[in-house]
Amino acid sequence: MTAVSATPTATPQPRNAVIRSARDSLVVAKRNLIRMMRIPEVVIFGLVQPIMFVVLFSYVFGGSMKVGGTTDPGVYREFLMAGIFAQTVTFATAGAGAGIADDMHKGLVDRFRSLPMARGAVLTGRTLADLVQTTLTVIVLAIVALIVGWRVHEGIPKALGGFALLLLLGYAFSWIGALIGLTVRTPEAATSGGLIWLFPLTFISNAFVDSSQMTPWLRHLADWNPFSATVQACRQLFGNPGVSQSPAWPMQHPVWASLIWSIVIIVVFRTLAVRKYRHATS
């Protein structure tokens, strides 16, 4: 033990594990937010994409889409917004994945793993920073949506509830991204690997079309898709048209279904990602 006593190290402060974990996560989150501010391109492209989707879907598909028995483009635009919001928050997956893969690639994960810090903090910090970015994106998107004619009809508290569910879904998906990033190890692969499966996930859902028009097996998939639950919940809470009448449980209880899906995703993917991180080799 002489080696320890010979050279005093800077006094590490003893901390309760939970407080330490929270503090370490915030230190890492701060680091990721500083990065985001210094690479504004990423945030800007993250904004342009959903805005483009709003405009394209509203004006190209609107008018030919039948929602709630009408093809009124104004109705489709209101219907569409919950889907676009939900799709936008899930794109956080790619950001988290690319960020963590980049840290692996650059050797930063080795640095972090050699420090006496909480095990999950590197990943929690990253997902928290992504949550901040997602929140900003959703705010900008909501403003654009208001401009093209989207409104909330059930009051502000319910609307805020809808946004809370959206952010929770985005946070859950960033844990999927974290696991992808740790698995593929290169930022490029993490970006595409984080996006490819999102397309079937978001399209086989009630996000852009009325799922009752789908063939039965697709409709079942769509009804039980975690993504659909949040979209349905938002339509209800925002008072937007096109709420699905499907008897499937998640469509009947979309707020609960959305909460349960998001929490299950967080628990499962956080566990897997933290385990993977502990054995990560760059």
């Binding site: 080696a3 320890v4 190290t9 800077a10 006094t11 590490p12 402060q13 901390r15 330490r20 503090r23 370490d24 230190v27 890492v28 701060k30 680091r31 500083i34 990065r35 210094r38 690479i39 650059k106 050797g107 930063l108 080795d110 640095r111 972090f112 050699s114 420090l115 006496p116 810090m117 903090a121």
Partner: peptide
Amino acid sequence: LIGLSGQFAAVDEYLTGRENLQMVGQLYQM
């Protein structure tokens, strides 16, 4: 009780030198 300096300079290139060192210090629980 250890310090590790790697083969690839493992610093965050978007953080300043000062921010990098402060972050590492805090993660050493200072």
